[in-house]
């Protein structure tokens, strides 16, 4: 099994809201100091899913990232987890690409890699929360896709994917190659071993540019974006909270019960 995993570096989604701020002039997030970007948590699950398939079926895992030169560090984390190869897709022409350009570039990367059975993505990038790129890569490659997967099994050259829906799970079957996006229900991603980390430090990570991919710069980056961001602002819903107190927890809880009876519809 030749598996390509798409990884996006994101701001840590668990960071406290108080640390999150936006430059209202440029409509950009101000990166909080001392908080390096992390692997999008769903993409770490995509690496995990790839490793499980490789453990069962053998094969090779290639991690790809389209972000910036700094992304090499994020790719090393995927290698430390067990990915065999990593490619950093980086070119000034790619800056400010929207989800369609991103998917277009990644689909071209997949084509250039050439041999592939599976492309794995996260269900959404925990920064812009789109949940689009995986499906669009599949469209551009004209191959099947299943989003929000919890588990993937390969048997006799066929793919079985269990996906999460609002009220349960569904199992789909399809041929290879295919695109699958991973959801949190899949479980936890593994922690790299010491050996993995040493291996990752030594790994040569090539950079592929716009011309390496033979792409017309007009088709990517800001010029190709279909929607434009006109405003970005922080949103922290807040209400004034009446704190219930009493001489002990019992009394306070009693008062809260009264309060609930008042507001109960």
């Amino acid at each position: 099994m030749e598996i390509i995993v798409c990884i996006k570096p994101v701001l840590d989604p668990d960071m406290p809201p108080a640390k999150f701020s936006v430059d209202s002039k440029t409509n950009r997030v101000i990166p909080p100091e001392g908080m390096p970007l992390v692997i999008n948590p769903y993409d770490a699950l995509a690496v995990e899913a790839a490793l499980k398939i490789k453990e069962a079926k053998g094969g090779k895992i290639t991690a790809v990232t389209l972000a910036g030169s700094f992304a090499t560090e994020i790719l090393r984390k995927a290698v430390a987890m067990g990915a065999d190869e990593a490619i950093n897709i980086n070119d000034p022409a790619f800056e400010d690409s929207d989800t369609f350009s991103t998917a277009f570039i990644l689909a071209e990367v997949v084509k250039k890699i050439g041999k592939y059975d599976l492309v794995l993505c996260g269900r959404q990038a925990a920064d812009w929360d789109n949940g689009v790129v995986g499906s669009v890569i599949a469209e551009y490659l004209n191959i099947p896709s299943v989003i929000r997967a919890k588990g993937i099994v390969v048997t006799n050259g066929k793919l079985r994917v269990e996906r999460v829906v609002a009220n349960g799970f569904e199992i789909y079957e399809m041929g290879l190659p295919a695109v699958v996006t991973l959801s949190s229900e899949m479980g936890q991603a593994r922690i790299p071993t010491g050996w993995g980390i040493i291996n990752a430090v030594k790994k040569k990570i090539p950079v592929w540019t716009c011309s390496d991919l033979g792409l017309d710069p007009v088709r990517v980056g800001k010029t190709a974006a279909r929607n434009s961001l006109v405003k970005l602002y922080t949103f922290s819903p807040s209400r004034s909270c009446e704190m219930i107190t009493g001489k002990d927890d019992k009394e306070a809880a009693g008062k809260l019960a009264e309060k609930i009876m008042d507001i109960k519809p």
Binding site: S238, C241, E242, I244, A253, A257
Partner: peptide
């Protein structure tokens, strides 16, 4: 953080508070 977002708040162990809520709401 939930208290920033709530209209009414109680700082307590739920294991103490919830049984009392149940008892009081039952009694009306």
């Amino acid at each position: 953080n939930i208290f920033r977002m709530a209209d009414v708040g109680l700082v307590a162990d739920y294991k103490v508070a919830v049984p009392i809520l149940i008892e009081k709401l039952k009694a009306g």
